[in-house]
Amino acid sequence: MPDALLEVDRISKRYGEVVALREMTFEVRAGEMFGFVGSNGAGKTTTMRIALGVLTADSGQVRWKGAPLTFETRRRIGYMPEERGLYPKMKVAEQLVYLAELHGLSAAAARRAAGEWIERLGLGARRQEEVQKLSLGNQQRVQLAAALVHEPEVLVLDEPFSGLDPVAVEVMSQVLREKCDDGVPVVFSSHQLDLVERLCDRVGIVRKGQMVACGTVDELHEGGPARVRVRVEGAGPRWVEALEGVQVVDKLNGSVVLELSEGVDDQAVLRAAQDAGPVREFAPHRPSLSELFRNVVTEETAA
C-alpha cells in the first residue's frame, strides 16, 4: 500500500457544548482522489479548515509526509473554499497573478501560470473582467484556477462542483484527474454523490464529526446484506410479503430492489417471483454510493 502523504490523525474540535469533530481520522496517498461526503454540519468543512490552519484542533494532528503541517508546508496546498474566496472587484488575470505571487512565484512565473490556467479552464474571454461580473459557474472556475496557479503539492477542495454546468463539470473533472496522474493527492467534498462515485479512488463518509466508513466503493459494499433487483410483469410488490427475511428497499422503473436477510436463498425468491407472474428481470443489485450514504443517514436517524 502506498505511503500516505496527507494524514488527518484523530483531530477533535468543540464549540462549547457542540462537538464538531470527534477523533476524525483518514489519509490520502500520492495520486489519489479522495471523496469526503456527509450531511450538512457533519464536519467536512471544519476538517478542511483545520488542515489549512484556519482553525486549530483541540487535539489530534494533521501531517504532511509524516511531519506536522507548518506555515511553509501549508503554502504548498491548493485550497478551494465552499464560499467564494475571491476579491470581487479585481480582474480575473490580475487576481490570479496576485495570488500566485503570494505563494512565492516570481512576477514572470505568476503571469505565465495565471495565463495557462485561464486558458485551460476556458476563461480566456473573461481575463479582463471583474470577478463580481462573472456568472457563478465562471467564478467557480476562477476559484479553481486560484487553487492551482501556484502548482500545489496537494489539493483540498470544498464543494468544487457546486454551480457548474455539465461542460464545466467535465473540464474540472479532467483537470483533477490530470493532477492525480501527476501524483498530486486530491481531497474534495461534494453532495453530488454520482460524481464522487465516478471520480474518486476512495470515499470517506462522515457522520456527526466522525469518519464512519472509508474505502473504495467496492470495499464499502463488503459485509452488507445481499440485494436483488426483480421485475415481475403485471405484479406489484405484494408477492414479497409472504417471503420471510425479504423486504422491499427500493423501486426502480417497474422493478423492486429486495434485501435478503442472512440465510435467505435467492433461488427461493426467484421461484416465488415466477409464481407471481412472468419474470422479466432477476439480477444482483449493487447499491450506488447514494444508497450507501442514505443507509448511513438512516442509521443516524434510528440511533
Rank of each mutant, 00 (worst) to 15 (best):
H191A: 05
L157D: 05
E151I: 01
G209T: 05
K179R: 15
P166Y: 13
K179W: 11
V167E: 09
V142Y: 07
L199H: 03
K179P: 02
G223D: 02
V232L: 14
R202F: 03
Q174M: 14
F188S: 03
I205R: 03
V212I: 07
A226T: 13
R231N: 10
V230N: 11
V230S: 11
V156I: 15
V184G: 02
H221W: 09
V169L: 04
L144I: 15
V206A: 04
A226L: 14
P225M: 07
D218R: 05
R177A: 15
V154C: 10
V142N: 06
L157I: 10
R198A: 15
I205L: 01
S190R: 01
V149C: 11
E153F: 04
Q139G: 09
P160M: 04
P166D: 08
R177W: 08
G209S: 06
V156K: 05
E222G: 01
I205Q: 03
C180W: 03
D201L: 01
D218K: 03
L164C: 02
C180R: 12
E178I: 11
R177Q: 15
P152N: 12
Q210I: 00
V232F: 13
G183T: 00
V156P: 04
V230H: 11
H221R: 15
V187N: 00
V149A: 11
D218G: 05
P152W: 10
Q140L: 08
Q139W: 05
E170I: 13
V149F: 10
V203K: 04
V196L: 06
V203N: 06
E159A: 02
M172N: 04
P185D: 07
T216H: 02
G223F: 01
K208Y: 07
A147G: 12
L199R: 06
